[in-house]
């Protein structure tokens, strides 16, 4: 799993791939897609909570990125790509039809979009698997209760492990804004989880 994200961070020939992509090289761009698709998909999924929608959005992000490669003038390509993804998530959540298409119930009842159905469970006992499944569902529900900007900050920093600085670039806001949004998001999640403490693992029950 980590390789999926580490690949995006190292990217030995990334600059060359970007240059070739800007010249219209589809193969070069597709190598970038393979590097970063996990990152974009995970952000989309955690923001929207629906697998099919996250897949569509991920595809749109890469199409949009290819179209607007000319606007990338060097720097952090990963952050640039995540900014496109974050904006796509914002736009999607802002659109009026979201409430009808993606409901919380649909997300939690649909096995295909179960956030834990793809957990590596070989080492886990059936009981542990069920507990993990329930925990992941609770966390995903909790994420959906947050305002979208706070959710973005929480997903980028706490779920995907970005630094404040990288998250600030990806969100297009100052580091101080990331800090305050993250503080509020964590505080809200803490309250949400406190009300469901019976579902928390023993070592992290508070």
């Amino acid at each position: 799993m980590e390789q999926l994200f580490r690949a995006g961070r190292t990217g030995m020939d990334e600059q060359d791939l970007i240059t070739q992509s800007k010249d219209g090289g589809l193969d070069a761009f597709n190598q970038l897609v393979l590097q970063y698709q996990g990152l974009v998909y995970n952000l989309s999924f955690r923001m929207l909570g629906d697998q099919a929608t996250a897949q569509d959005l991920t595809q749109e992000v890469f199409i949009s990125a290819f179209r607007h490669l000319d606007s990338f003038h060097g720097g952090n390509f990963r952050a640039w790509l995540l900014r496109i993804a974050a904006n796509a998530c914002r736009d999607y959540l802002r659109s009026a039809h979201v409430r009808h298409n993606v409901s919380l119930e649909a997300m939690t009842n649909d096995p295909a979009s179960d956030p834990v159905s793809m957990l590596p469970s070989k080492s886990a006992s059936p009981e542990e698997y069920v507990l993990r499944r329930e925990l992941a569902a609770v966390l995903q529900k909790g994420l959906r209760t947050l305002p979208k900007e706070q959710r973005l900050a929480l997903v980028l920093v706490d779920v995907q492990g970005f630094s404040y600085e990288d998250a600030a670039v990806a969100l297009g806001v100052p580091v101080g804004t990331v800090k305050s949004r993250l503080s509020r998001a964590r505080s809200a999640m803490r309250c949400y989880l406190e009300e469901r403490r019976e579902l928390l693992p023993d070592d992290l029950r508070f």
């Binding site: 897609v33 698709q37 697998q51 995903q140 929480l154 779920v159 492990g161 964590r186």
Partner: peptide
Amino acid sequence: LEATIALMRRLPLLPTTRDFTL
């Protein structure tokens, strides 16, 4: 708060189930 952050970090990074190349 530490427990909350630890729980969030336990959310799995999901593998992509399809290819998004153009």
